[in-house]
Amino acid sequence: MNFNPEIHERRSIRMVDYDYSSAGFYFVTICVQGRESLLGEIADGVITLNDAGRMVENSWLELPAKYPDMAIDEHVIMPNHFHGIIILQPPVVVGAPLAAPGYGKNGTTDQGAASSAPTLGDVIRAFKSISAINVNISLDRSGQPLWQRNYYERIIRNENELHNIRQYIRNNPAQWDDDNENPTNQRNSAP
């Protein structure tokens, strides 16, 4: 079948005209392909990661070494999805303020030189790729997608939102029985 942009156009779920390299806090959710429970099990509100889940966690924890202009915050690996907070920061120049003037759209500076700051998409792409490679090798399922094509993000706008999202992440395993991502609930909710 030939590509037809009117039929095959991929619709972005990102905010139009938002600079995803902007300094800030971002809440992300990434789902396993087909919502398959590959990463662990939850019993009595506690997640127990299997080898694949531990590989995903290691991939998450190693992100700041790959991208020095970002940090990670609260996260949880669920059996079939992942929640985490990513903090993007402007590049720090010796003697310059932390939020250097002119740092802005498309990662450029006042002088027009590209910055080294990653976009949120860069960070997610690296995380998904590295974790998928490691998990697929471990599970002997080379070439199969681990993650769904896209991801969900929310720009965290203030301290109250950050606090609430951190609480949501921490409490997520305890809420598994009622979670929409729980395959048991998806089967029970079918018409």
Score class of each variant (00 low, 15 high):
S21Q: 11
E41V: 15
S22K: 14
A65H: 10
N106C: 03
V56Q: 06
L98G: 06
E181T: 02
E161A: 13
N185I: 05
T109P: 00
I42A: 11
V46K: 12
H75T: 06
G104I: 14
Q167V: 04
W60L: 07
A117S: 08
E161Y: 06
L39Y: 02
D44C: 15
A71Y: 10
R141M: 11
R154E: 12
P64N: 13
Q111M: 14
D140F: 10
R35N: 09
V93H: 02
I156G: 01
I72W: 02
N172S: 15
G121C: 13
F27S: 00
Y103F: 10
I133R: 01
I86A: 01
G84S: 10
V46D: 08
F25P: 00
I42T: 15
T184L: 12
R10P: 07
I137M: 05
V16Y: 13
G45D: 14
A113L: 11
Q89D: 04
T29Q: 04
A114M: 13
N150Q: 03
L63G: 00
D17F: 05
F127I: 02
D44Q: 10
V16A: 06
L139M: 10
Q175L: 12
E159F: 09
D178Q: 14
F25C: 15
G102T: 14
I156Y: 02
G112R: 06
L39I: 14
I86N: 00
T29Y: 06
V32H: 01
V28P: 00
S37M: 11
L146Y: 05
P173V: 07
D110R: 09
I13P: 01
K105C: 01
L120I: 01
G102H: 07
F27H: 01
V123S: 04
N50F: 12
N150V: 07
Y151C: 12
Q175Y: 06
L38Q: 03
I47N: 04
V76R: 09
D73N: 13
P90S: 10
I133N: 00
T109A: 11
Q186R: 14
G53C: 13
T184G: 06
L63T: 06
E6I: 04
N180V: 12
H83M: 07
E161F: 03
Q33A: 15
M70N: 03
G40E: 04
N158Q: 04
P5Q: 00
P173T: 09
G95I: 03
R187M: 09
C31E: 09
E159D: 13
I137W: 04
Q148Y: 10
F27V: 03
W176V: 07
G104S: 09
L88W: 00
N134H: 04
P183Y: 03
R54K: 03
Q144A: 15
H75A: 09
P101E: 06
T29W: 05
A100W: 01
N2K: 02
N150T: 08
P191C: 03
I47W: 05
I155M: 10
T29A: 13
A174C: 12
E153R: 02
N188M: 07
R154L: 12
S116H: 11
G104R: 08
V76P: 02
I156S: 01
G45C: 13
N171A: 15
